[in-house]
Computed example of a mutant assay.
Amino acid sequence: MKLRADYHMHSTYSRRNHGKSTIEEIAEEAVRKGLEEIAITDHGPKHYMFGVQEHRMAEAKAIVEKMRIKYPQLKILYGVEANVLDYEGHTDISSEVLKQCDIILCGFHLGALFTTAGDFWNFIVMNKLGKNNKSLREKMIQKNTEAFIKAMDKYKIDILTHPGDKIPLDIDKIAAMAEKKGVILEINNSHGHLNAEEIKIASRYNVKFAINSDAHVKERVGSFEEALKEAKKANLDLKRIINLV
């Protein structure tokens, strides 16, 4: 059992040294490990700590195009891991971002520039308070879930990254919307979501899954062992994982 493709990794086009390896180093490592396909997916521009600067995306895409020529045996996609920014489901997937992207990933990140102070309060403060308050936690799960459902409805998202990480979600409702919109759900090798219990819930729906490394250094490109353990623990039909062979 091996990974043929890895659709989630961060390069030096991330701000503040978040991704440690260049696009060329990532491509070289992917070829060395026998991968057939990768996607360079730095955080979207509205991640104030680590997001790719929008004006540098064309430069990064140009390097990807050079790597396609250098490594014709490797299919290289360019995209972003966009950020959910508010409870109306808006993200940083702008028209300018879309011009450069072959693939769109989307998830929730604490370092995003949320649309309003109220969104920051709810996403960060209220979700934290909900960890010790059952009724508040249930309320926030529904609010968080609705934000993701709206995002999947507003945008063409290819892969939803690490659902349930950092803020709780109703995975049943997320999977139902993913089925409706054709969104692939990620089993992230670095973050522990989807975990086995979440995979069991999501697999009740006609959705596909992707195991991704979420690599920040070239050595982690193609890593999948922890995610595969969760998929097996959930008794998931591994044929539903699009990039596993």
Results as ranks from 00 to 15, higher is better:
190 S>Q: 13
143 K>G: 00
54 E>C: 07
131 K>D: 11
70 K>Y: 12
122 N>P: 00
60 A>N: 05
92 D>W: 10
120 F>M: 15
52 V>D: 03
157 I>F: 08
225 E>H: 05
100 Q>M: 13
227 A>K: 02
35 L>K: 05
105 L>K: 11
187 I>N: 00
153 D>P: 09
132 N>K: 15
96 E>C: 01
198 E>C: 04
62 A>K: 15
126 M>Q: 14
179 E>F: 04
82 A>T: 00
87 Y>F: 15
87 Y>M: 07
91 T>D: 09
147 A>D: 03
123 F>V: 06
152 M>S: 01
3 L>E: 12
140 M>K: 05
158 D>Y: 01
89 G>Y: 01
101 C>S: 10
86 D>T: 14
122 N>A: 05
96 E>Y: 10
2 K>E: 09
153 D>H: 10
205 Y>E: 12
133 N>F: 11
186 E>T: 03
45 P>F: 00
147 A>W: 11
200 K>E: 12
177 M>A: 03
89 G>F: 02
237 D>A: 15
241 I>K: 01
59 E>D: 15
137 R>Y: 12
79 G>T: 07
1 M>S: 14
196 A>N: 12
139 K>P: 00
88 E>N: 13
53 Q>F: 05
165 D>A: 12
96 E>H: 02
130 G>V: 06
81 E>N: 06
46 K>E: 06
99 K>A: 14
185 L>K: 08
79 G>V: 12
47 H>R: 10
71 Y>D: 06
50 F>L: 02
58 A>D: 15
52 V>H: 05
136 L>N: 04
57 M>N: 00
3 L>Y: 06
210 A>P: 01
148 F>T: 07
90 H>W: 03
46 K>F: 10
20 K>M: 13
39 A>L: 03
165 D>T: 12
56 R>W: 08
203 S>A: 15
169 L>V: 11
3 L>W: 04
194 L>P: 07
196 A>L: 03
203 S>N: 05
3 L>C: 06
84 V>G: 06
86 D>V: 06
177 M>F: 04
36 E>R: 15
199 I>Q: 01
92 D>K: 13
61 K>S: 06
132 N>D: 07
225 E>V: 07
38 I>H: 08
161 T>V: 15
126 M>I: 10
228 L>Y: 08
137 R>I: 03
80 V>S: 08
9 M>C: 14
224 F>G: 02
118 G>R: 10
112 A>N: 02
214 D>W: 03
7 Y>G: 00
177 M>P: 09
29 E>F: 01
224 F>N: 13
143 K>C: 04
82 A>E: 08
222 G>E: 02
36 E>G: 11
